[in-house]
Every structure is written in C-alpha cells, then in structure tokens.
Nucleic acid binder design. Structure first.
Lengths: 358, 358
DNA sequence: TCTTTGTTCCGTAACGATTAGCTAATCGTT
DNA sequence: AACGATTAGCTAATCGTTACGGAACAAAGA
C-alpha cells in the first residue's frame, strides 16, 4: 500500500467532530432545551440541573454555534463596517473606537473596505445583506443624487453614515462640524495677516469637503478678504492630486502665502510639494490642515491642525446604530454633529512681507 | 382609537418579510432544489428552467441567506483577522492587502482588535470559534511558553501568524527578516562613523523584537564595535515608553550619537524626545527606524527607514491560510520570511566630532 | 418491444440552535 | 381533597439552504 500517513500532525487543523448541544444534553442527562435554557438564561432551570449542564459543557468542550443561533434567532450580532480607506489614519482612529464600543456591546464587526470605489462599495453592501449583518456603519465614497438612491435600494438594515452625509439618503449620521473647524483655522491664518489663503478641497459634492470650503469662505468674509476661486483647488482628498495642486498654486504668478488642506492625506501631499519647492515653513509659507496626526508633535514643521474627535465619532456611531436595532426605534432621523478642535502648533506665522520689500 | 400611525417612514429599517428560496421556487414553478442548483451551479439545470429561475429571483428580489448556507455547508467564508493594534499604520497597511486578497477570493473578514491585551485576544479567539470563522490571521500580542499553549487550546481552525511567531506554536507564519533589515540600517550608521548606537527594542521574547536586536548586534560585530547593554532600551513597541527611554539615553553621561527604533510607534516617541531635547537631526544626532511612513518624504527630518513589504505580507498571509482551507492541506509547517528594504533619507549623517573638539 | 443509459428535476433529510406548546409535578388555599 | 396557579422540563417545529437518493422521461441499442 502506497501513501503511508506519517504521524507528525504538528499543524492545528479542523477538529474531529463538531460538539453540539445534543452531546451536552446526553452527557448531562437532560433535554437540549434545558441546556439552552441554562446557557442563555431564557428560561428558569433548577440549580442541580444547571450544575450538571455546566459540568457536561466543560466535559465535552462545548461552544454554542453562532451560525445556528443566528439562523434561528434572526440576528447575527454582527455589524458591517464599510470604510472608504482603511489606510487613512483618521479612519483607523474611528475604527478603533467603533471596535471598542461594538465589542463592549457584544457585537462583532465585518470589515469592508471599498477603497474609494463605489462599485466595490455596492458589492460589499450586497454582501452585508446576504451575510445578514444586523446593521451597517458606512463611510460612503460616492455622491450625487443617483448614488443615494442606489444605496437606499441595496440597504435593508439600519445604517449610520459616518464622516459624510448623502443628500437624499435618509439615514442617521455622525459627522463633525467641518465648517466651524475650517473657519477657525483659516481665521487663525487671516489673523496672522494672510490675505491670499489657498485651500485644497475634496471632491465637490462630498459633504465633508463642501462644509469645509463653506467654513473657508466664512472665514474670508469675516476677515474682509475677497474670495478668489483660483485659490480653491480640488485635491480629491488624496495625496498625489494634492501635491500636484499645491505645486501649481506655488508656481503661480501670485502665489498664496498660506495653505489649508481639507484632510490628512492632502496635507501630506501638500507638504511634499512644499518640501520640493524648497520653501521653509512657516517662514516662507504658512500651512494648516483638517485632521490631526500623532506624529505632528515629533516632526518639523509641527503642523497646526483641526483635530477630529475620533473616539466620539466611533462611539456615537455605534450608539446610534444599536439604538435603531432595538424594537423601540425612535421615529425621526438623527444627525450628530461633533465639534472639532483647533490645535495651534508652529506651522503658521505672519506672511513674509520681507519678500515683497526685497 | 389612539396611536395612529403617521405615514412618514423616512428611515430605512428592517424589511417586511424575508424572501426565501421557497418564494423563488413558487414563482418560477420549480423546486427549491432547482433554484439552488441554478444559483450555485452545483447540479445541471436546463436552459429554459434556468431562465425562469433567474426571472423569478429578479422579480421577488431574492438574496441567498449566507447564514443558512453556512449552517448547511459547514463553512462561513469568513476569516478572522485578529490584530494587536488597528491604529498602527503598519498594521493597517497589512490589513489593506489582506482585505484585497480575501475579497478577491470571496472571503469576508471579521475584524478583531486585541488592543495589545492577551485577555481580549483570547476572548476574540473564542468568539471566532463560536462564529465559525473558516480560518484566522493572527498578530499575536503575548509571549512565553504558556501563551502559545493557550492559543493552541483555543484555536480550532487553520491559522496564520502575521508579523510575529510564537515559539512552541506550530502555525504557518508570514514575517519579515528583521535581522537583516536592522543589520543593514545599523550597518549604515556604523559606516557613517557612529560607534555609540543605541536601539529601542520591543518586549524581550517577542520574535519581531528579538530578531531586530540580533541584527543590531550582528551589525556591531561586523563593524568591530563592542556591544554595550546600556544602549539597548525596551520601548515596549509603544510611543511613550520609547520617548522616556530616549530621554534617558540622551541625558546619560555618554550619550549615543545614533538611535535606532525597532518600530514606527517608537520612532515617533523617539523623535518627540529628540525635539524636546532641542537636538538637530542629523547634525547633532542620527536616527533611523524599522517601518516606513508615507509622510516620511514630507516632514523633517526625512527619516531613514527599513520598509516592510506590507502588501506582500498581507497577500501571502491570505494565500497561506486559503491553502490550508482546501482538502489538500500540505503536511508541513510553512514560514514565509520576506525581505525588508532600507530606504536612506536625510536623518543619518556622520557623528558630530565637532562637539568633542569644542 | 424491452432494456439500458443519461439526463433533469423533485422530495426531503440534514445542519445546530432556540422556543412555542405541552405535560407533569408541586404548592398553597379554601 | 379538590382546585387553580405556578413551575420545570421535554418534544418537536422552525430558521433557509444544500445535497443525497430516486423518479420521470427521452434517446439509443438489442
């Protein structure tokens, strides 16, 4: 006979046979109903039987099967977490809070990353439906009227939008006040004396970007600075486009003296461009951005940022979603808007009048 | 009658009634077996019937229920992803690759974050068992002999260790060659003329840390530099301990002229300390670290780093795990060791002899 | 005409847990 | 002692899907 089996089974693999509730019942000498009752507490069980059941559970090494339970109960205790970009530190900070809150409430997360691709997002929305997630937290990537409608059609469970809202999509949402945050940061620049302040925006139509641009214009108005459309550049919330846009801005005939990036990725692209141009910050140019980094304290220039309350965002998102899961679902839509916080560091200074004098 | 129902149902909620395969079968005038066969292709179905089934599926808006399918088939097409720290950019880069690979193979991820807590890790291991994940990818947080045994007991499906190995835990693994990476980086510092090179290590006993310290000593040997234990400080792979350790090192009687941090978090802590001491890098002090950052090009000092191939790590981890899932599980253990890459930037320079002369 | 060989398709028994519905048994109360 | 009320535990149906064994029927060979 060929094909001997060498008995070195070092690799942990699938176990021999599934231990079911029936095995426990048999060993304990009770019915499966009683085992279930002791384990879930759904019905009263006498102390001695409980003891026998627990002993039997330990003896046979029984773990209840969540799949079977989900099928029967009609709930999975799983939440979909559909992200636009898991690589983004802002996202991961939120995810961290979401995970903690969900875990504390006995929910597990299904990780979905759309990679900024609306098609992949829809695929995942479908997947979450088939896998019967009890609810979904969504950082949407698309925009436009049709987009909202399509999500609406695919969605079939309670959902919460995180970071962005979608017009015409009636869902609970948790966002931060991008208008105020940007207004304060740009106001800070204006106060320092800057008159030509450029902004790197995200895609037009995305709420998080639009709000921030609105805040920018508000700050300009307050400072009595005329709005110059050529100082608003779309950096698509991504690093490379932001870098390119910054280079264009800085090479223009009349370059800005200050730059504001609407998110962290664009801030990196912006700073690369600044470094490439050989400019010293904040001497030659002042910069600031939305989103904070934990390394902002450690590298030069120490960036002035608008920090988002990522813990609160994640926690509130889970709270909102779990609120919808119970029977007593409040009727109206809920939109929680959290305040950002301006952190002033070293990257902003008065504009270089010296250059003009020289 | 009190309690009118106001017909403003703006919130998307649970749908009315579940559409099952039976509904499709009824509408198409076939058996549920035939519907299943057409949808999964598990058995031959004639063209006309297929057509009718497909039409019926579209008509009633049927989505197969993955929970029921999992129960019946005994596989969930879910993979557990048990992370030590989702906030770490290295981790998220790997997760990004893992997600892409898993998604491409039709698997969904269950996101678990142990937050560097062995107890939470075990809780999640249990949970993954309960939820019947088909396999697990694990970035372990503990160490020591007992630790491996405990994981072994809890684990019940194929698993792959990522980034770290555990002695006595016979599992497939994907890691990078930390020894070579560190040896090259520290060698680079030695070549520049540094003799007192300090290293911030992770916890002793963690493979990723031990390897890197080994590489450090190898580089010292090659350069003919005597090993000085006081130049090895445990930064626990975390930011604050690394900052504290760096301050101690720099305030010592005979401070090092170069610093190497064994991971990204410690690099940040290290740089904070350097900034706090008012030292200019690389003039006063040279620094380098394991792990690369995408903002390393954008801020000062532009850090010299040892970049890990995160895409490959994630991709290989999934490949290894999926390989174990099929019937034809290869007998032996597999351990894939990937090469890191030294990226030389501006943070290393010859040591400041000037200081000694002055 | 009567097998034989193939094809489709259907009925139905799992998968493993929960729970509605039921049967006894126990306990006070009158 | 009889009665309802309460309780503990059991049986069996159920969740939605897949896969096994066989039925029905057509084509082909004897």
């Amino acid at each position: 006979m060929e094909g001997r089996i060498v008995s070195n089974s070092p690799v942990i693999g699938k176990s021999s046979r599934k231990v079911t509730i029936r095995d426990v019942a048999r060993v304990a000498g009770v019915s499966t109903a009683t085992v279930s009752a002791t384990l879930t507490g759904s019905a009263p069980v006498s102390a001695p039987l409980m003891e026998r059941v627990r002993a039997a559970v330990a003896e046979v090494g029984y773990r209840p099967d969540a799949i079977a339970r989900s099928l029967r109960r009609g709930e999975t205790r799983m939440l979909g977490l559909l992200l636009a970009d898991i690589t983004n530190p802002f996202t991961t900070a939120v995810v961290h809070a979401v995970e903690a809150a969900a875990h504390a409430s006995g929910y597990t997360l299904m990780l979905c990353n759309s990679d900024e691709d609306p098609a992949k997002e829809r695929t995942y929305l479908d997947l979450l439906r088939t896998h019967r997630a009890d609810g979904v937290m969504l950082m949407p990537v698309g925009f436009g009227r049709d987009y909202g409608q399509q999500i609406r059609r695919t969605l079939d469970v309670p959902a919460v939008l995180v970071d962005r809202t979608i017009p015409g999509l009636p869902l609970d949402a948790v966002t931060v006040d991008g208008r105020t945050g940007t207004r304060e940061a740009v106001g800070h620049l204006a106060t320092l004396g800057h008159r030509r302040i450029a902004i790197l925006s995200g895609p037009a139509g995305v709420s998080a970007s639009d709000e921030r641009v609105t805040g920018y214009r508000a700050a300009l108005d307050e400072a009595g600075i005329a709005f110059d459309p050529s100082l608003v550049r779309d950096g698509a919330f991504r690093q490379d486009p932001a870098r390119a846009a910054t280079l264009e801005l800085l090479r223009a005939a009349e370059p800005p003296t200050a730059l504001f990036a609407c998110n962290n990725l664009m801030a990196i692209g912006m700073m690369r461009a600044v470094a490439e141009m050989g400019l010293d910050c904040p001497r030659d140019l002042s910069v600031a951005c939305f989103d904070d980094f934990d390394w902002a304290e450690a590298f030069q220039p120490r960036l002035t940022t608008v920090a988002q309350p990522t813990d609160a965002i994640g926690g509130q998102a889970v709270a909102l979603l779990l609120g919808r899961l119970g029977e007593a679902a409040a009727p109206g839509l809920r939109h929680i808007v959290l305040p950002p916080r301006l952190i002033v560091r070293d990257s902003c200074a008065p504009p270089p009048r010296a250059r003009r004098c020289a």
